[in-house]
């Protein structure tokens, strides 16, 4: 977790330094888009390879997913209120 934050801070620093080099920044942006797909594929792969997850899914997967969805629904409900009343007005900056 710490290394992830350090890596990102390094990126922020480099981005700040090379702010004016638009072609470089745009290239980084494009590459980020493709890396998301790579990350998703590799994440799927590590789940497919994980026997604990695959073997237990039929037994307790349903309850787990219902729990996840209820937690997410509650979170989005409150965040939507916060967004509507506190954040939306700042967006035109």
């Amino acid at each position: 977790m710490t290394e992830i934050l350090i890596i990102m801070l390094t990126g922020i620093f480099i981005g700040f330094l090379f702010k004016k080099k638009r072609s470089l920044i745009n290239a980084a942006d494009k590459l980020a888009g493709f890396s998301i797909y790579l990350l998703l594929f590799l994440l799927g792969l590590s789940i497919g390879n994980n026997e604990i997850i695959i073997n237990n899914f039929a037994r307790i997967g349903f309850t787990s997913i219902i729990l996840t969805l209820s937690g997410i629904t509650g979170s989005i409900f409150f965040s939507y209120l916060a967004y509507k009343f506190f954040f939306m007005s700042d967006e035109d900056l």
Binding site: E3, I4, I7, M8, L9, T10, G11, I12, F13, I14, G15, F16, L17, F18, K19, I25, A28, D29, L31, A32, S35, I36, L38, L39, L42, L43, L45, S46, L93
Partner: peptide
């Protein structure tokens, strides 16, 4: 886990995006 390296790359690139955006 190879996905961690894809994540490192992404974090670096997302960082560049944030740092370069004065908004």
């Amino acid at each position: 886990d190879p996905s961690i390296y894809a994540l490192y790359l992404l974090m670096f690139l997302v960082g560049i995006g944030i740092g370069s955006d004065s908004n």
